[in-house]
Simulated scan of single mutants.
Amino acid sequence: MKQQQRNGPGPTHQQAEQHYLVEPRHLAGGGDLRHVTEYLRASGWKDRSKRRGPIVFDSPDRMVRVGFDPTTPPGGWAIRAKATSHQEAWHAILGPQVPVEIVAGFTDALTKPRSAHAPNVWAPLQGWKAEQRAHFTAKSPDGNAFMQFHRSAPGQAHWWAGARTEHGRIWDATFTPTTPMHLLQSFSSALADPQPVMRPRGHIPPSNRIRTTSVSVLPSELGAWQQARIAAARAAAWARTSWATTQPRKTPAASTHASRTGSVR
């Protein structure tokens, strides 16, 4: 990535900053929380966070809450949904070291309409190694991440995910049996995505199982990438709102008037 050049006098040129492309992404560490929160904000979610307190965002209908609190055990992300007429209450807990790009796979899906297609959590994990023991488990090609399923009773399907390095388990994610399947599929898609993720210098977890590529990035480039993601969220939110407000409405007053007019003799 080349530094931009300008001719003639003017402000000091931007200085490129060293970042790293990290792979596999499931070992990249937590990352910048704004990758998740700014997308929610742009999608119309309400920021309920208190100063110096946990991060809290509520969905526009107040039925789902996304929070991040590294201080209260078990720490990390807590996503909770209230029961509705067609969906039982559910919650998910994702540890603080779950990469934000994987968290966003789950939370971004909360802001979008559910697909008409039947979800399949395992479909994105093609190429992962399947193991059938007490649990059904899919392991990543490098053996360092997993997605796991266990049915303890009819209607009780438990889901877990996690990753480890040579230092032991680095993060876990747990989902209640009532967690919507399309959200789990979005999570597994982000988990299995082969694309590396970017981290600034000094934010690379210590592990010999991580591969890094050094890149020089201008602050303006980082800002443009972040704004593109936010703009996409705003556009999707605007489209949903616009569609809802432009639906044809019935005009009972006009119908009544026509009926009365026709009855006059």
Rank of each mutant, 00 (worst) to 15 (best):
M1Y: 04
Q4C: 02
G8D: 15
P9E: 14
Q15H: 06
Q15V: 13
Q18K: 12
H19I: 09
V22A: 08
P24R: 02
L27D: 07
D32P: 10
V36W: 07
E38C: 09
G44A: 06
R48W: 09
K50F: 09
R51Q: 02
R52C: 15
G53M: 07
F68H: 03
D69Q: 10
P74K: 02
P74L: 05
G75E: 02
W77G: 00
W77I: 03
A81M: 02
W90D: 00
L94N: 12
V98E: 08
V103F: 01
D108P: 02
D108K: 13
P113R: 07
R114T: 15
T137L: 05
K139E: 06
G143T: 08
N144V: 14
R151P: 08
R151Y: 11
S152Y: 15
P154R: 11
A157Q: 11
G162M: 11
H167Q: 10
I170L: 06
I170K: 00
P177Y: 01
H182S: 11
S189D: 02
V197M: 12
G202I: 01
P205Y: 09
P205W: 13
V215P: 10
V215Y: 14
S220P: 08
A224W: 06
Q227C: 13
R234F: 13
A237I: 03
R249G: 03
A258V: 09
